[in-house]
Amino acid sequence: MTTGHEQSSCYAAQLQIDSFLDGELSNGHEQGFLAHVGGCVECARELRYAQQLHEAVMDLPSVDCGAAFDARVDALIAGREPRSAQGESFIAQGRQRNTSLLESFFDVLRGRGAWSATAMGLCAVVVAVVVTLLATNDGRATRQEAPQIAEAAVERATPATTFDAADVRVALKELNTAIDYLNRVSRQTEEMIGERFVVLPLQQSINGSLRRASFERDADAQGPI
């Protein structure tokens, strides 16, 4: 009958099997692993099976389809030109315009006081959403004008190609820029609020206490009237 400790050792060892097979265990861990496997029939069997299966998977053949495939692809692309970089990056350009607009807006923000910065920061979120929506509509209208780009729109309508990785990266970059600006505004606001509602009252309270303490000490020094 196996004890709880043995079971947890086996569990840990079996989790390390793949790292061991990839040669990724550090020296200490590898020695511990091998020591356990050397004394445990179950884990030794599991390791042997894992090794056999791993080798079998690595030996699986690649699949190819020959020259006829190339001819079919040739026929499919015949007479079609690759999309121009201009068409490809149209949406990205639109987004860049939005980002520049946002940056200019926040440049104005930086020159203002903290309260107005907070208010304008909140407005910025609304403006960003509106600008993005407008730019998306703008992009659609222009895509309809160019057949090549319209074809891209049809392709984007299919589920997995609606947004490709480049689009997502651009969107994330924009989002990060906006978050970064909002964080800065938030920090300024926090400092300002802290100054006015925490530091100043605390300072006044400490000064008051010091004044009172000083007054009481003076009174004690003078003794009873």
Partner: peptide, 11 residues
């Protein structure tokens, strides 16, 4: 996939 590669070739 290879037709898509052709479409996106420049990028």
């Amino acid at each position: 996939v290879f037709v898509k590669l052709w479409h996106h070739w420049p990028s």
